[in-house]
């Protein structure tokens, strides 16, 4: 973010004697202009971002209920409980939620990345119905997350469409699989975990493909043509030219994907019907709502929100510092 509001050097075209009104003046920008443009945004930003964050931090130091969130000042007890609280029978566990978030973030990259790059490379060629295929791939991402969740929940429930269909094609042995209720497992060994990953991939791969297609369209054809003249095969061109030039797009997509994974809530909430703990699918966000809202401990819930905020911030800053950093210098 730059505070440089000075208008740039006169451009070449203004020298051609166009209307004086278009000529950028060299006068100083006046304070009321700055205020006029920034204050409305600033007021909204402060009122709806900073104040709530500050209030959340204040609430996290209390152990109040919904009707009296600022009762019982407890200092840092909530935070100590989050990090040192033990696993309790049948209850959501913070570290399970953190593990799930990291697993989902990593697997989203590993699953969606290669598939999306492959499809994007495929769709980047001239072919029939390319527009329609592109649109179809983008559709799942446009569909509301809640609708997607309800749809898959209905498809995957016991005696749902998937079970019936598996039965009919002779795979009766796996038709009884509890896709969304593999109880007693967690993490990578859970069927439910992989089912959720499949749904998330279905939902979000469209966004990756569209981003990659946009990135590919920015790669000049001349480079490919030059390589072709030099006798490079299609695979060599992709590997040596296209993929390296797609790097900045991939890094931005990975950043968005990681942030999305850390904030994951709706899909899990709907697929597990607001009960992720029993199938070991808690994320930090569902953990926050379960112990904060559903159990009416808004102070504890706010403390989790603060922790979630800090973890996401650390991941985001680390990513920017070590990975996105290399793109910033190249842009200009």
């Amino acid at each position: 973010m730059s505070t440089n509001v000075e208008v740039g050097e006169p451009r070449a075209d203004t020298a051609r004697g166009s209307s004086p009104a278009l000529r950028p003046s060299k006068r100083k920008v006046r304070w009321f202009e700055v205020a006029g443009f920034t204050v409305p945004a600033l007021v909204v930003y402060v009122a709806f971002v900073f104040v709530p964050i500050g209030f959340g931090v204040v609430m996290s130091l209390h152990d109040g209920s919904r009707i009296a969130p600022l009762n019982n000042f407890v200092g840092l007890d909530n935070f100590i409980n989050i990090f040192t609280g033990g696993r309790m029978f049948g209850q959501p566990f913070f570290w399970d939620a953190v593990r799930n978030n990291f697993l989902i973030a990593i697997l989203s990259l590993l699953l969606q990345g290669p598939i999306a790059i492959g499809i994007a490379l495929l769709l980047n060629r001239k072919m029939k119905f390319r527009g329609i295929v592109r649109m179809l791939i983008f559709v799942p991402w446009i569909v509301s997350e809640v609708i997607t969740g309800v749809m898959f929940q209905m498809l995957l429930m016991p005696n749902g469409a998937i079970a019936v269909w598996l039965e009919r094609i002779g795979l009766g042995s796996i038709a009884g699989t509890q896709w969304l209720a593999d109880i007693g497992t967690g993490g990578l060994t859970s069927v439910t975990f992989w089912t959720v990953m499949a749904v998330l991939t279905w939902k979000y791969i469209g966004m990756a493909i569209i981003l990659f297609l946009a990135g590919l369209s920015g790669i000049p054809d001349e480079l490919t043509e030059a390589a072709q003249i030099d006798g490079a095969s299609w695979w060599q061109i992709q590997r040596k030219i296209t993929l390296p030039l797609l790097g900045p797009t991939v890094r931005i997509w990975a950043f968005l994907s990681i942030i999305g994974s850390f904030q994951l809530f709706d899909m899990i909430w709907i697929l597990t019907r607001a009960n992720p703990t029993i199938v070991g699918m808690d994320t930090m966000a569902t953990y926050m709502v379960q112990v904060g809202m559903s159990r009416d401990r808004v102070g504890y819930g706010s403390a989790i929100a603060v922790v979630l905020f800090v973890i996401t911030l650390i991941v985001a800053l680390t990513y920017q510092r070590f990975i996105l950093n290399r793109d910033i210098g190249k842009e200009s």
Partner: peptide, 24 residues
């Protein structure tokens, strides 16, 4: 709700064969 919600989770875990009566 602070106890009730957690109780329901514990009971469902028990009913799913995750633990014994003492765990509840």
């Amino acid at each position: 709700s602070a106890v009730g919600g957690g109780m329901n989770s514990a009971i469902v875990a028990f009913m799913s064969g995750q633990g014994g009566p003492q765990d509840v």
